[in-house]
Design a protein around this nucleic acid. Structure first.
Lengths: 349, 349
DNA sequence: GTGAAAGCGCTAACAC
DNA sequence: GTGTTAGCGCTTTCAC
């Protein structure tokens, strides 16, 4: 391992001068000295050992991102954009896949904190941050991506960027109601997350406003499905809609927990000979890339992932670097946007 | 920050005893001592500082995974399985998204090595490992996932697990030829990777064997498309097939670079009023989850990602821990598997 | 079986 | 401007 001393020797300076060069304090010395150091670094192919660096400085330019499911392209897109944003700030990004498991999530957060990463972005995690309390007390700064803010604030979270999922739920339900649908089903998986809960509550709210309701037999949440842990959302969506469409009085429209479920629902509807949207309208949430590729193109709610990623990274870095951010700046809301495509149609009369 | 000394003080022992406990050398002491240390760790919520640990030991139980595109669900699945496998070995996994960019890839590899991560799994990277030569010399152990092995060996790579992409290409082409197709098109993006090149060469080989060929006008590789860097494979697939189907003598079957392209090709075919598979057969590679959800279900080549992930992680960890692995064990081939579904059909007569 | 002591490679005072 | 020095938190001989 070539170290700072080797560089110092080759350049004919001391270790601290090399350290200064590395850390952008090159103006503290004669340009020629600086250049000699740079040359030595170059010729020795030297890279600073970040473990040592971090140990000494306690500082660290790495952010963590914990996503609930690498299998869902939505989170792939989030990872992509967050990584970009971090890189633009000269930070790097460690991505962890928690599989929607609180324990795994806590373990990764702990691992991250143990590695000196104090800033971690959490993709919508289960319900609350109780499992991370200790870590937060020990200095972990959490940025909530796509989490309900009230929850977020009361748990000492550093910052958040989220779309109003309740509103998202209302938007899709209103769209469907506007199309004349009265029996509207909802398909989600068995795992509770804030965003999922809020989406469903939004749907109920819109329904209630139209003097409609969401009866138990139109609400499928993976009950009884075994081994769901290893199932893609699309599998669940496929099974779920088949159950709903097999009811005595099936729904004419189905709201799915996210786009992957919705795409699975396409398959499930087809399995039973239903055409989309003629026989049943289907909507999702997220607007993944596939949503406009499939047939019919999926009506869904778009979350402006790119902008959200940039905002959360900016916020989190400020927090990690010790900046106090006023509450009204630290918790950002972005509006959901209904994208109407071909998977929803007026109810057949 | 609570450190090893705090624990030592609370447990009434010395720091080195605590260190021994942490590192599983608990048998070196009286069980009661061990227990006291454990209790102290528990009550103090102590976590070892991994930067310090690594600095001292030079060891490190983290693996890196560099994927070419977080936006492609195939790589999401790979990340998922590799992460699992690493976790089973008590390693953790840093996932990096290199966006099929050699420079970004090199930078991440360097960052990883600088962080003490010596074992890095590379998802099919561009062409060769020239950009990583220096890092390899400095101790980076590379495991090639889904790379051609010949290439791999000559570059001092530690180990690899791959399917024979040439054979994969042959399999799909033979399937199509068996169905009576004679004008077979190929759609890929503009970026060259080994696996892509091999797939296409396999297709050509199978075609040649049947005294057929792949004329230039049936080979689309994104020429002239601007801003492809920000386009999903599905977009390219959509555009590509439209160009091919607009030729004077359009293909009756199209082989797409991967499943995302294939799914995009569904849309492109639809755009022009072609039905799949009646008017045009479409095949992909990878067998992502969506492949069996879409309509018609996609004929594709399956790569046994789960098994591959476990093998590569096992191999790489052996290498990282200093094990010398015989060449015939270090470079594993797994067979590709043709999954025939509904997107291919006999040519219309 | 347990503790004292010497660094791992680097940073940041503080000398010179 | 540049070098000297004292650790960051831990692991690991080597005494006791």
């Amino acid at each position: 391992m070539t170290g700072i001393h080797d560089v110092a020797k080759v350049a004919g300076v001391s270790a601290s001068t090399v350290s200064n060069v590395i850390n952008g304090r090159g103006n503290k010395m004669r340009p020629e000295t600086r250049q000699r150091v740079l040359d030595a670094i170059e010729s020795l192919k030297y890279t600073p050992n970040s473990a040592a660096r971090q140990l000494k400085s306690g500082q660290n330019t790495t952010l963590g991102l914990i996503i609930p499911s690498a299998a869902n392209p939505f989170w792939g897109a989030v990872a992509h954009h967050v990584e970009r944003a971090a890189r633009n700030h000269q930070y790097r990004l460690l991505i962890c896949n928690a599989e929607r498991d609180r324990d795994v999530e806590a373990r990764y957060a702990e691992t991250l904190l143990g590695s000196g990463v104090t800033g971690v972005i959490l993709g919508s995690s289960p319900l609350n941050f109780d499992h991370l309390r200790d870590l937060i007390r020990r200095g972990l700064k959490i940025a909530a991506f796509d989490q309900r803010v009230a929850e977020v604030e009361q748990n000492g979270v550093a910052c958040s960027v989220s779309v109003d999922q309740h509103l998202s739920g209302m938007l899709v339900a209103q769209h469907l109601i506007g199309l004349g649908h009265k029996r509207i089903g909802v398909v989600t998986g068995p795992i509770k997350t804030n965003s999922r809960i809020d989406r469903v509550s939004g749907v109920r709210a819109a329904l209630a406003r139209a003097r409609l309701e969401l009866p138990e037999d139109l609400r499928w949440q993976g009950g009884g499905v075994i081994g769901f842990g290893d199932m893609e959302g699309s599998e669940l969506g496929r099974i779920g809609i088949r159950e709903l469409l097999s009811r005595d009085n099936p729904p004419t429209a189905v709201i799915c927990g996210n786009d992957m479920y919705a795409l699975g629902a396409y398959a499930g509807a087809r399995d039973l000979g239903y055409r989309v949207p003629d026989d049943v309208s289907i909507v999702g949430f997220d607007d993944i890339a596939m949503a406009e590729i499939v047939y019919p193109p999926l009506t869904t709610i778009r979350q402006p992932v790119l902008a959200m990623a940039e905002q959360i990274v900016g916020l989190l870095i400020r927090r990690v670097e010790g900046d106090e951010i006023p509450v009204d700046e630290a918790f950002i809301h972005v509006p959901p946007q209904l994208i109407v495509r071909g998977s929803t149609a007026p109810i057949r009369t």
